[in-house]
Simulated assay, not measured.
Amino acid sequence: MATIFYARVSTTDQTVEHQRIGAEAAGFKIDRVVADHGVSGVSTRLAERPEGKRLFDILRSGDTLVVRWIDRLGRNYGDVCDAIREFMRRGVVIRTVINGLTFDGATKDPMQQAVRDALIAFMAATAQANAEAIKEAQRGGIALAKATAGEMKYRGRKPTFDKDQLEVVRNMLEQSAGVGQIAAATGLSRQTIYRIKEDPAGAEGALASWART
């Protein structure tokens, strides 16, 4: 039985190493890392990614698949739900670093199955909703950058967080994590996390604005 860690990095601000270190810090003993680089979790299904499709070949009954959060599998509701259910049918256990959730097909009780499936559906829907919110914020940041091009650009102070950290903060806030817990997980100050919490779209827009300089 092996523990496989799957990482997906879609931008240069994210790294596989960052995700792996986070998993090991949470107590996971990783036997193998499988990672996709520069792949969208919205438009590219897990089974269509260069490395994602390998998971369907190498995972066996009794193995554990570890991901930082469900959105690493994808940000498309249907794809995430289908992938997790297929892995569970094969006897694979899926575990998340953030919140320490576990999904498997062990229970035969229909009520427990219903609760488990509802949680999977909720998390998959949250992943897609977050992706749509981020895209909207990016469009706003890009529009702002274009509107100020050729003028005296005032972008404010450069963000003290990167895209990977912002994504972790947003995901943990969605799961009702405390500010102290988020600060420990990301290395960001409590003040920074409060600012992101109060204006997540503004935080995303600030990153987009600075990224285009």
Rank of each mutant, 00 (worst) to 15 (best):
D13G: 10
E204P: 00
A201V: 13
V16I: 14
H37W: 11
K135S: 11
A114K: 15
V92M: 08
Q165V: 08
V92H: 07
E151C: 10
G178P: 01
A131L: 02
G52L: 08
D13H: 11
T12S: 14
R49K: 04
G187N: 09
Y194T: 07
S209H: 07
I84S: 03
S10G: 07
G141W: 06
D82H: 08
D82E: 07
R139H: 14
T12A: 14
I134K: 10
A133L: 11
A25T: 12
I84E: 03
D109N: 15
G140Q: 15
L173D: 02
A7K: 01
S40P: 09
R190D: 10
L65A: 08
G78K: 11
H18G: 10
G38L: 03
F5M: 09
A2R: 15
C81W: 12
G41S: 08
V115M: 07
L59Q: 02
S176L: 14
Q113C: 14
A206R: 12
W69V: 03
G150C: 01
Q14W: 00
G202P: 07
I182H: 07
I120H: 07
S189M: 04
V67F: 06
A133T: 09
T126S: 11
A211P: 02
F56P: 00
Q14H: 03
D82S: 08
E174V: 01
V67K: 02
Q128F: 10
E167T: 13
L73Y: 02
D36F: 00
R8G: 02
I142G: 13
F161H: 05
R20N: 11
V39Q: 12
